[in-house]
Amino acid sequence: MDEIISFGTKRDYNDFKKQIPSSVLPLFDSVRKFCLSLGENVVEDIRMHRVVFGKSMTFRWFVDVEPEREGIIIKIQKSRKEIPQILQIKTGQEITELKEIIKNAFETIN
């Protein structure tokens, strides 16, 4: 049984990014590309107003990214027992530290 069961119409990223302000799109794309590069077991879930990244089919989410007018809001979760860390990143802001936080969350989440 190699099929994935889907309920309803699933959005894809090309459809989702139409709602992201053009000034925010490079930042959003950069964070998305980084999350997907963390491993083959990264799962991307396109939701109505945000994109959530999880680890494997059990979908333990580690990053939730939502576009805003002037940047993005990122929720980072390292475990189900901890309250997610919420960061607001503006366009043009350096994201090297953010990438380290995301990588740590990915490596920590079970």
Rank of each mutant, 00 (worst) to 15 (best):
Y13D: 00
D15F: 10
D15R: 05
F16R: 01
F16G: 03
F16V: 03
F16K: 01
K17F: 07
K17T: 12
K17Q: 11
K18A: 09
K18W: 06
K18S: 07
Q19C: 04
Q19E: 10
P21D: 02
P21F: 01
S22R: 11
S23G: 02
V24A: 01
V24I: 02
L25Y: 05
L25N: 02
L25C: 04
L25M: 07
P26R: 02
L27R: 02
F28A: 07
D29W: 09
D29L: 11
D29E: 15
V31A: 08
V31G: 07
V31R: 04
V31I: 15
V31F: 08
R32V: 12
R32F: 12
K33N: 14
K33G: 07
K33F: 14
F34K: 03
C35E: 06
S37L: 04
L38T: 07
L38P: 04
G39Y: 03
G39Q: 01
E40V: 07
N41S: 12
V42D: 00
V42H: 01
V43S: 09
V43G: 04
E44R: 06
E44H: 05
E44V: 08
D45H: 10
D45S: 12
R47N: 09
M48V: 13
M48W: 15
H49T: 14
H49M: 08
R50N: 14
R50E: 12
V51P: 06
V52E: 04
V52Q: 08
F53K: 02
F53Y: 13
G54V: 06
G54H: 08
K55W: 04
S56G: 07
S56C: 09
T58G: 13
T58R: 14
R60A: 15
R60F: 15
R60Q: 14
R60S: 15
W61M: 05
F62G: 01
V63C: 15
V65C: 13
V65N: 06
V65F: 08
E66N: 03
E66K: 11
E68F: 10
E68D: 00
E68C: 08
R69E: 15
G71E: 01
G71Q: 03
I72Y: 04
I72N: 01
I74R: 00
K75T: 03
I76G: 06
Q77L: 09
Q77F: 06
K78F: 10
K78H: 10
S79M: 06
S79P: 06
K81M: 10
I83R: 14
P84N: 02
P84D: 00
I86C: 09
I86S: 13
I86K: 15
I86L: 10
L87K: 12
Q88D: 12
Q88H: 15
I89M: 04
I89G: 05
K90L: 12
K90T: 11
T91D: 00
T91H: 00
T91A: 00
Q93L: 08
Q93H: 10
E94L: 13
E94R: 14
E94C: 12
E94S: 14
E94W: 11
I95T: 13
I95V: 13
T96I: 13
E97D: 11
E97C: 08
E97S: 13
E97V: 14
E97P: 03
L98E: 00
L98G: 01
